[in-house]
Nucleic acid binder design. Structure first.
Lengths: 235, 235, 235, 235
DNA sequence: GTGGTCTAGACCACA
DNA sequence: GTGGTCTAGACCACT
């Protein structure tokens, strides 16, 4: 129906939530989601609502469900063949610039607020995120460490709406640039995070903002390279 | 229930939508909403869903329903006694700074994008919004003209997520600073808008950004003054 | 899985049952099924199980679901365009001879048993079925009256297994030969039924058996004619 | 629950399947069923489902489970005391005529079709079944040879529904008339089979049908004699 | 101890 | 009063 306002069913919300968790690296390829009963309890929904959501994720190829004692719901292995996820990412081509711009708006100002308001505890969270990024040699959890850093900054900004929006925007894209990424870009990300951290720590809002914009732009660039082989012209 | 994910019923969505329309000045105090049948059709929902939504707005004191030939659903007259809406606004005190910061994040970057991407047609929309603001002597539709300008900028930025978020953020607050506002602040707003317009027209992103931040800060300041009599310290 | 034995889910059973009801004319095109709550109670299953079954019927194009006060679950109108159901029937081409032979085996012997065991009450049921067939000028309920006669014979045979199998076999085919059939074949069916009735009434098992075989063969022939335009060679 | 439609659990299906195998003589008294792992694999079900099914067969006294090196699942020895199985058969008294009539309906027509459609390969199967019946001096596998002949005819009829129904009907009854049967009735069965075979071979449908009816009637009669000592009046 | 199915009852959105 | 969604709990089939 061509309605102006819409309702969302619980099932849809749950599906979107799970998709976001996967996009943000909370669950990586091959990981097993918690058992249905447990996950339903965590989310505060009935098991059947969760199951319906899982069915749509199955249909989208996000997860595979296996029965039996060692069964469960598993995030689809995408690494081989690589073309699988490359195809999936191409589907969201139009979204990449949209979301990158949106993220810049949100995160470049969030980092300003963070520079002004960060507490020692915030800094500690950020350091921990950077550290786990450094230790990520095998890259399997690169995305998770990345998410932790950006979420940490969002939280340090002390604005619930910003935090929520940043979190959500990062969850919209399936962007496993970690899969193909080797030493170089990973190292670049680590350096970016460290520089942003330093600016926030030093309460240098202007510098933090500039660094964040550059960081997200670089990420966008890398993502396009991974998808298209080289950076195509952007909007 | 303490759930992580939630569904929204149509009734809630409709109520929120109507509240947003009133917040943004699409319907001002004393205005009559379209007939139920018509409004339900416009929104693409069943009449009963709309009626349910209106009931919650009634309970919140947003609208009054009058029966009979000259009946209908009317936005509550708030001007007298003034204390009514002052009380209502105090309820959202905690939200004012949250939303102001959020709006700065969204709109200060949107205006940058607008400066880069605005088309002649965008400029025409903005000029028209400024003009209707000038003609607003009686102030009843001040808020509407204000909304039109900010929405126009959001659209010129060419990013659907930004546009949607800006629209929604402006709809969250009941901020009828127009009610108490007299010549001075109204004139200030008009000047702000014109300055921002000029910067966007001249493709001066940096200047547009600075002006927008100042404009939203000024709005926040005025709002606090109206509520508390003078600007209290902010978070 | 290539299993020798299989389980059937309730949903499947219910779907098959409903399909059978439609095939046998208990619900004709355009008819509304009982409300979900009521039908579920009648079938002795939970509403959700029924709903799942209805979903598969929807997917197969058997029924349409409409919401609202005058909504419900409706058997798909097939009459226009005629090609719809012709296409559906072609799908079961291979089954027509299978089922016809199977029905001859079951019903030609059932009619023998009926001739031996029929009670006055059985005869009354059969007469009533024949009468409602005669009154069927508009043909909408031809199939139902037809089913009633054959079911009545099956019951008169006094063998539960035969009765069940006859009932089921008649439910397997979507055979709305009533839709295209005009005076002639309808009249032929009426005559067949009357002749079989007379033989059963007179306890003439041999004659009843012969007539039943001819009747089913004629039905098979008509069905093939309706589908293919003329009787194609049979297996 | 008093439901119109039912689902069947896998366990029930498996139990019924095994019971049918025993009824049809695939496994005779004293025989050891294949190992659980193997049997589960053959049936395409999980081992636990098979175990559950075996438990119900145990409860019904069909099989005995023995542990240890020479253990396994064994079909219960029924010969002594004879009263055991006589009691079991009495339980199905009501079914005997039902099933006999049903079998006549199915098999008397199947044999007609077989007479028309039998291939040389079909005849070969039938001859082989007759031969193994003749060699059955010790009678332990009489039932198996009997089943093979009737199944062979069902297959020669070339109608899947008939074949399935015949197979199932024969599996419903626990009818070890072989246990008590001595030379005479065994010889009678052999002669019946040979006569039916000849009629089918000669494509004499009418004769085959008559012979089959007589054969099944004779079987019914013998069964009643075995159970009650003499043929009681039938329904 | 996993996912798969089913139940009984409740509330919501619809026309 | 219809279909649409959700819940809390149970049992079944699988590995």
């Amino acid at each position: 129906m061509n309605r102006v306002v819409t309702s969302t069913t619980l099932t849809q919300s749950v599906a979107e939530h799970l998709r976001s968790l996967i996009h943000r690296g909370e669950f990586g390829p091959g990981d097993r989601l918690p058992a249905e009963r447990e996950l339903a309890e965590q989310l505060g929904v009935a098991r059947m609502s969760l199951r319906d959501a899982i069915k749509t994720l199955q249909a989208d190829g996000y997860v595979e469900v296996r029965r039996g004692a060692r069964g469960g719901t598993f995030v689809t292995e995408l690494q081989r063949p690589v073309e699988n996820w490359r195809a999936r990412m191409r589907k969201q081509t139009g979204e990449i610039d949209e979301i990158a711009d949106f993220r810049i708006a949100l995160e470049s100002y969030a980092v300003r607020l963070a520079a002004a308001r960060r507490t020692p505890s915030d800094l500690s969270v950020l350091r921990s995120a950077i550290k786990s990024l450094s230790h990520t040699e095998g890259l399997p959890s690169f995305r998770l460490a990345d998410s932790r850093f950006h979420d940490g900054l969002a939280q340090a900004a002390g604005n619930v709406r910003l935090e929520t929006a940043i979190h959500a925007a990062r969850g919209e894209l399936f962007s496993p640039h970690d899969i193909l990424m080797y030493k170089e870009p990973l190292e670049a990300t680590r350096k970016d995070h460290e520089a942003i951290y330093a600016a926030v720590r030093d309460r240098d809002a202007d510098r933090a903002e500039v660094l964040m914009r550059e960081h997200i732009e670089r990420t966008r660039h890398q993502l396009r390279e991974v998808i298209f082989g080289s950076a195509a012209g952007q909007a």
